[in-house]
């Protein structure tokens, strides 16, 4: 369920920290802490997606690789999966995108920043079996956008130094498991569809009331509307069809955009007419 975004310089030890975190999380899951025995932990990184180091040389290829990474994260996100995104994640826009994706899934997220000096990264890179090319390494470190804990999408932020013994697993567990009230934004929620025959009902109901008024206006000043508890109180002068039609158009124009239950349309129209008749001068 939670999303863990690991960010840092290339060859800074992100995979090492991710494996360490995975083991610690799995230990807690086995112990059924906080009823998480059904949870699973998955790491998504360049190795699991077969992304080569040369991909980061050209922006076009890098963009495709980033899309691949994003799709993998999106697929794995669910309510019972720890997803560890072990990648460069050096673009803050990309981190924001991941943050929004986790938010839309009603789940928590955090960012782990593996903070290692550049010289140490170069040293680690030279010792790797599949190192980054030196120019690619330098460009990536140059373009790196460090996470900022003050921003919404980069918080909560956990910084792990290269000489730290382990990640702060207790704190990470607490913010991921104990914080449950994540809700998507109002603007991104799906709207329920309106009734398909609303406009027809609006037109028909108002027309029926007007025909009722025309049929009875000569007999009485109080007209009982069938299907409604209200009565229409006619003014003392004759109510003409052009006047009724104008009031009806006004009512339809006001209520065209809103979706009301068709059962209350008649009563609303009767109330509207009574109010208009009251103010006739």
């Amino acid at each position: 369920m939670p999303l863990i975004i690991v960010s840092g310089y290339p060859s800074s030890g992100k995979t090492t920290r991710s494996n360490e975190l995975k083991k610690a999380l799995e230990d807690r899951i086995h112990q059924n802490i906080d009823n998480t025995k059904d949870y699973r932990v998955i790491i998504i990184n360049d190795e699991s997606l077969n992304i080569e180091k040369e991909t980061y040389r050209e922006s076009k290829n890098e963009k495709a690789a980033r899309g691949l990474l994003y799709s993998a994260v999106q697929r794995e996100l669910s309510k019972s999966t720890f997803v560890i995104c072990d990648a460069l994640n050096y673009i803050k826009g990309f981190r924001y995108q991941l943050y929004c994706e986790s938010k839309s899934m009603y789940t928590t997220h955090c960012v782990i920043h593996v903070a290692v000096p550049q010289d140490l990264c170069r040293k680690f890179n030279s010792n790797k079996e599949q190192p980054y090319p030196d120019d690619v390494l330098e460009q990536l470190m140059f373009r790196y956008e460090e996470p900022n804990g003050m921003t919404r999408w980069d918080s909560p932020l956990f910084t792990v130094l290269h000489d730290d013994a382990s990640c702060p697993i207790d704190d990470i567990w607490s913010v991921l498991i104990h914080n449950k009230n994540v809700k998507p934004n109002q603007a991104t929620m799906v709207k329920p569809p309106a009734e398909v025959n609303y406009l027809y009902e609006l037109d028909k109901t108002t027309q029926d009331v007007i025909m009722l008024i025309l049929d009875n206006s000569n007999d009485t000043s109080l007209i009982t509307v069938p299907g409604s508890k209200l009565q229409i109180a006619l003014p003392s002068v004759t109510v003409s069809l052009p006047l009724l039609q104008r009031l009806r158009r006004q009512f339809i124009q006001i209520n065209r955009q809103q979706s009301y239950n068709t059962n209350v349309l008649k009563e609303m129209f009767v109330e509207f007419l009574n109010g208009q008749f009251e103010t006739l001068d």
Binding site: S221, P235, S236, V237, E278, D281
Partner: peptide, 19 residues
Amino acid sequence: LTSYGRLYAEQRLLSTGVL
């Protein structure tokens, strides 16, 4: 008395529906 049946005494409305 207005055309629409409102009976006024100066500024005060006495009754509506007045014929």
